[in-house]
């Protein structure tokens, strides 16, 4: 934890969230997304958390927008779902801190993932850059979707200096 900002304080802070600790001791906060107001709240929460952890303004904003894009998908396409913001404290090994975004829904699933990750493809009246855009804004991005179990997305933004721009298990979008 050397030199790291107070992680619990960062999560608690203005967020007033019920701070939970999972098995690894990581702090996280769960947002339930149904409406557009929920989307704004989680995007704001992500940004505040990132700024409090010492992310640069641009990277905090990247995280907020990626969060907004993914949460919007929940509200618009999936009939609601959850977003979990989780602080990854890796300071002992590699001196890095990240924020993990876990997005889950029980919605209809995405029939063709490769197509959904394609620039400009949208089934709705949208720009079609939500998923590919969000993946580009994050350092790591993986998505798993089935028509039975809905969609699961895990994405990570590392506090700079970032290790690799893209993780090997990233989506096949480039």
């Amino acid at each position: 934890m050397t030199g790291a900002p107070d992680l619990n304080g960062a999560l608690n802070g203005d967020l007033n969230g019920d701070l939970n600790r999972d098995l690894n001791g990581a702090s996280s906060r769960l947002f339930s997304i149904r409406t557009e107001a929920d989307v704004m709240e989680v995007a704001r929460g992500a940004r505040q958390l990132a700024e409090r952890l010492g992310f640069s303004q641009v990277h905090a904003y990247h995280l907020a927008i990626a969060t907004s894009e993914l949460a919007t998908n929940l509200a618009v396409y999936a009939g609601g779902g959850t977003v979990r913001l989780c602080v990854l404290d890796d300071t002992e090994q590699s001196a890095r801190i990240g924020i993990e975004l876990s997005v889950e829904d029980q919605g209809p699933g995405i029939p063709d993932l490769a197509l959904a990750m394609t620039e400009g493809y949208s089934t709705g009246a949208r720009l079609g850059c939500g998923l590919p855009g969000a993946s580009r804004l994050m350092d790591e991005f993986s998505i798993d979707s089935s028509t039975q179990q809905g969609t699961r997305i895990r994405a990570v933004k590392w506090r700079q200096p970032a290790p690799e721009r893209r993780s090997p298990q990233g989506p096949p979008h480039e």
Partner: peptide
Amino acid sequence: QPFVAMTLIEMGRDL
């Protein structure tokens, strides 16, 4: 704003 511009372009289209 600068960070808005950087994010919109990073997202990848002529938004």
